[in-house]
Amino acid sequence: MSIQHFRVALIPFFAAFCLPVFAHPETLVKVKDAEDQLGARVGYIELDLNSGKILESFRPEERFPMMSTFKVLLCGAVLSRVDAGQEQLGRRIHYSQNDLVEYSPVTEKHLTDGMTVRELCSAAITMSDNTAANLLLTTIGGPKELTAFLHNMGDHVTRLDRWEPELNEAIPNDERDTTMPAAMATTLRKLLTGELLTLASRQQLIDWMEADKVAGPLLRSALPAGWFIADKSGAGERGSRGIIAALGPDGKPSRIVVIYTTGSQATMDERNRQIAEIGASLIKHW
């Protein structure tokens, strides 16, 4: 067993022997301040990774656009098919120029040779490549099948209805392509620590998230040296922004954090800054 596999296998073990965790309302004060600064709703939840206990939450059962955070769930569904012998990570998928959609920095470079399922998941999570996500959605049967996968996990809230990039439209009061912070946090925890996926697939999923290259201005910008984070960000229309993450000190994750916002007129930089400040408060009061 590799060191990384050992780390993920012992996530519940280490967490069980940690000192009790206590909620700190100071972080919620910052979440509410972010709402004021952005002029928009902000949803927040913080779960203990081992027990699933909610440590703090704000608007945990209000719907927010998922945006690209759905790509972690998508690759979880792909990995479940791999575990069941219905898919192979090494299978190569070929596609054409007509398949390319807006923001496809990886797939646009491989029109000639195609990409493997493993490479597509890596591109979808680490670079948020939209064509990679659409190609992977095709392998599982489309958005409705991802929703069905989530329902089978016990998540009857999260739903995907459309493809990239239309799913980022974020129309107010439109339930399409949305989740709730509580539902997303619980589902992410199941994917990373539950028995739904094999140990190898859980490790692969967290490795992809740990290698995320496009979430630097968010929670990662607030992390002290030595902290662990595996995350996936999302951005959408109407001032929408979000991030889902597993993080913790001492090089291992111990909490799940989900943050979503929508309806702001603020710039992307300002949305990023507010999420980073929430992260800084979380870490300060850990």
Rank of each mutant, 00 (worst) to 15 (best):
H94P: 09
R81S: 09
R118Q: 13
V78S: 03
L218P: 03
V42D: 00
M184Y: 08
D231L: 04
E164N: 00
W286P: 03
A185V: 06
R202H: 08
R189T: 09
A245P: 00
F228G: 05
W286S: 01
M184N: 01
M115I: 07
F22M: 10
R241Q: 04
R255P: 00
E119S: 09
N168F: 03
T131S: 12
L49H: 05
T262Y: 15
R162N: 10
G39S: 14
D33R: 15
R118L: 12
A23R: 04
I243W: 04
I229W: 02
G141C: 05
G52M: 06
L136N: 01
E61L: 13
L150W: 06
M209F: 03
H5V: 08
H156I: 12
A245T: 05
P165D: 06
Q204M: 14
A200Q: 15
I125C: 08
E195H: 14
G142D: 05
A185Y: 00
T131H: 04
D269V: 12
V214F: 05
A148M: 15
T139A: 15
L219W: 04
G239C: 03
F17C: 09
P224L: 04
L282D: 01
F70G: 07
A182F: 15
Y260N: 01
S51L: 05
A276P: 01
A84M: 10
G279Y: 03
G114Y: 05
G39A: 13
F58N: 15
E35W: 01
R81Y: 08
A15T: 15
A133G: 12
G248L: 00
R176Y: 07
L191G: 01
G154Q: 09
S104T: 06
E145S: 12
H151E: 12
A124M: 07
F64Y: 06
R81N: 13
A34F: 09
G90E: 15
F6R: 09
S122C: 08
D161K: 03
A280L: 11
L100D: 02
V257R: 00
I54G: 04
S281E: 14
S122V: 12
G279C: 09
R255Q: 03
W208C: 03
A276T: 10
P65A: 06
E270I: 13
G114W: 04
A133I: 00
E237W: 10
D129G: 00
Q4H: 14
L74G: 02
V8Q: 13
A132C: 03
A132G: 05
